[in-house]
Structure formats: C-alpha cells, structure tokens
Write a protein that binds this DNA or RNA. Sequence first.
DNA 1: ATAATTCCTCTAGCGACTAGAGGTTCAAGA
DNA 2: TCTTGAACCTCTAGTCGCTAGAGGAATTAT
Lengths: 134, 134
Amino acid sequence: MYSIGELSRATGVKVPTIRYYEGIGLIEADERTEGNQRRYSRAGLDRLGFIRHARDLGLSLDAIRALVALDPANHHETHDIAETHLSDIRARIGRLRRLEAELMRIVEACDGGPGHDCNILEAFGDHRQCDHEH
Amino acid sequence: MYSIGELSRATGVKVPTIRYYEGIGLIEADERTEGNQRRYSRAGLDRLGFIRHARDLGLSLDAIRALVALDPANHHETHDIAETHLSDIRARIGRLRRLEAELMRIVEACDGGPGHDCNILEAFGDHRQCDHEH
DNA sequence: ATAATTCCTCTAGCGACTAGAGGTTCAAGA
DNA sequence: TCTTGAACCTCTAGTCGCTAGAGGAATTAT
C-alpha cells in the first residue's frame, strides 16, 4: 500500500492534484487508515500512471474519464478517442505553423539595428498584412 | 464615437470581453454618455484591434500589456517580446509533433478490426514504449 | 409614446490545477 | 515510551481568459 506522497513520487502527479482527481471522481483511494489517510494499491498506482500519460498527451480529463470508463473489450471507442485527438493535434500544429510564419514576418519588419526605421508595432496591429484568416 | 457593440462588431472582440479588458486595466472608454454608456474613439478601436491580433497570435494578456506600454521608439523590447514568443511557438510545435508520433503509435497498436487482439489501452498507459521523455 | 434593442453592474462559472491556513497522524530516533 | 518533524487531512480561495446570466437602465427606431 502506498501513501499519497509515495504515489505522487512514483507517478509524478502532485499531491494536491491527486486529491483534486479524487474530488472530481476520477480516482479513489483503496483504503483509509484509522487516522483517515489515503492508501493506494498497485492498481491505483497504475491507474494514475495511465491518467498522467494521457494528460501528457494532451487529453482532457473528460476524454480520460471516457477512456477509463470503457469496456476494455470495446476498443472501437478507444480507437475513436485516440484518432479524434490525433486530428486535433494535427490541426493545432497547422495553426501554430501559420502563427510562426506571421511572427517571422513581424520580427523581420525590424532588423533591430539602431537608428533604423522599424514598424514592428504596426506589423503587430495590422491584420491586412496577413495572407490568412484569423 | 463608437458604442461598445459597434466596437465589438468592428474588432470581433465580444462585448463582455471588452468590459473584462477594461476591468483588468488594458483599455479604457474615452468617454461615457449621460446615461453611463461607454463611447470609444478611433484610437480606442485601433488599440483593441491590436490586442485582438496579438491574442490571435497567442500572446498572453500580460505580454500584450507590456507591448502596449512600450515606448514606440524603443523597438528593442518589442523585438524581444516577439522573438521570445516565436521560440515559444516553435517549442510548442516540437512538443506537438512528438505527441503526434506517439499517438500514431498508439492508434496503430490496434487495427480496429473485429475479433482482433488489441492493446491500445495498454499502449495508452505505458510510458516505456515512448522513446522520449515527458 | 412605445417597443425593441442595446447597454449597465454584479456575481458566478469553466478547466485543471495551485497555494495557503490551520489542524491531525504517522514513523523514526532517543 | 516519548517526542519531534515530516507528511498528512480538509477547506477555501486564487490563477487565466474569458463566458453566462440576473435584473435593471438607457438609447434608438417606429
């Protein structure tokens, strides 16, 4: 049996976060001591490790809740959740790439040299110089 | 002079958001009518447009606050803020690319076919299969 | 004059935590 | 066995960048 602190060190999830997860019904302690302290089994540790990993992958707690509630035999849904998230990530990469291009344009609006004419602030404010919508 | 609704339509920033920006001291109405309604000048509109654009670029309100407080002649700092943000965005793209690779691995852990052995949930939970840290 | 629309302030909620107060329990050493 | 100190407990409130809603006042159009 692990204490909450041991669980925290083993998974990398902070102690208050573990309690927060319990508060929203994502995990539960397997037992409590006489003095009301949480004790976790190996299964509890694995479950939290799973959640940690999924969070690192960027899934929302809601998506994770769906994931852990799944019948392990029913992997269609698991697949769906993973694929939905994959396309989300791809969309985000695309958006960030466009931002990157625009920021490069803005930074290049000024070469940083002294006594130089620089319109970087104007470039920041001006939508019309962008060739894409946002 | 523009009403808050006109400002909202012109910039694409929602009315409650404009009031929120005022609440945190980012903008101010140039005047109030007898009946206490906000009225904005063209300069106010431009300022909000600037903020909108910078938000779209992913800058935090704090970064924007720094940006609008700058002396326009001092473009070193402006440059710095833009470049810092640019490298932030590049780091985020890198991270998302790694997540993409891992999610692809996870999705491929199951071909979705019926009656097939699928370890997608295990793949989700298992850090050891990743070749990178997170 | 009336009706429709926009506006006002204020409070509370979202996700996913994080920080702190104030008090209790546990584990290890003397 | 006692004592210390670390770890634990619950509870509330704060973070960021909004968004939603209540309940009422002002403006605009007919």
